[in-house]
């Protein structure tokens, strides 16, 4: 750990009827850590992100962001506090241009709650967003509607929008899903370089173990709603139970 905890989750539990989506999850994440969450389908990875960002409400437990309880807050309140997320299926404004998508994200991040009556496309904001399009290497798609750009561009746009706020804690739900294998590293390089500039704490869900090994300094493995292992990448990926339930590689 490199600093004081940004996020402290204690005994977090979520039951959907009889199904346990999360059971007694204890985890704490330090400032500027880059954490990778792994787990088989249905292990509770996305549920965990949904609980922290207010999309779903926990059955029990506590989630503290810089000491403040998040349980009971709405997604927009949590976003305003600085916990932001991107989505497995990119959530963008499909009929608006790529630039307009980013302008809206940055406009809402700048303006706060009461100041929505400033012009959206101010010269400064347009310049800043054009700069970001270059950072994410999607400037060629600036004026194209988000619905018609390639999936990889849409994923990057979704992430760029999620980082509009001075996000102190950012969740990326499968940032490389739907992207061709040979492009995954390039996409992650772009994302990680952009996020390093923002000094964000990053938690990303990932299935690709090569990506996890390269970018995650710490790995949390989920299995059936519980945390199976948590620690440095090498240790967790070498854990026999993780190999059995998550990565599927048999012991050599």
């Amino acid at each position: 750990m490199t600093g004081p905890p940004v996020l402290e989750v204690r005994r977090l539990t979520k039951l959907f009827d009889q199904v346990v989506a999360a059971r007694d999850i204890d985890v704490s994440i330090a400032t500027e850590e880059i954490v990778s969450i792994i787990g088989a389908n249905g292990a509770g990875k996305t549920t965990f992100v949904n609980l922290v960002t207010g999309y779903a409400h926990p059955s029990a437990g506590s989630i503290r962001f810089r000491g403040q309880e998040l349980v009971g807050l709405r997604p927009r309140d949590i976003t305003r506090l600085g916990v932001c997320r991107s989505f497995q299926v990119p959530q963008v404004f499909s009929t608006m241009s790529v630039l307009d998508n980013l302008l809206i994200a940055y406009g809402l991040a700048d303006s706060g709650r009461r100041a929505g009556l400033h012009p959206l496309a101010s010269r400064d904001r347009v310049a800043a967003c054009e700069g970001l399009l270059r950072v994410y290497r999607i400037e060629a798609y600036r004026d194209r509607p988000a619905a018609v750009v390639p999936q990889g561009v849409r994923k990057l746009l979704d992430i760029a929008m999620a980082t509009a706020r001075e996000a102190t804690l950012l969740f990326l739900d499968e940032p490389t899903s739907g992207i061709a294998t040979e492009e995954k590293f390039a996409v992650m390089d772009i994302v990680m370089a952009a996020l390093a500039q923002r000094k964000a704490t990053v938690v990303f869900i990932e299935h690709d173990i090569d990506i996890v090994e390269r970018y995650g300094t710490r790995v949390v493995a989920f299995h059936e709603g519980r945390i199976l292992a948590d620690g440095p990448a090498a240790g967790v990926l070498g854990d026999s139970r993780v190999r059995e339930h998550v990565t599927g590689r048999r012991r050599a």
Partner: peptide, 12 residues
């Protein structure tokens, strides 16, 4: 019209 969920997750 395009995406209410995203508006919510942008904090509005």
């Amino acid at each position: 019209r395009d995406n209410e969920v995203r508006v919510e997750y942008l904090g509005y």
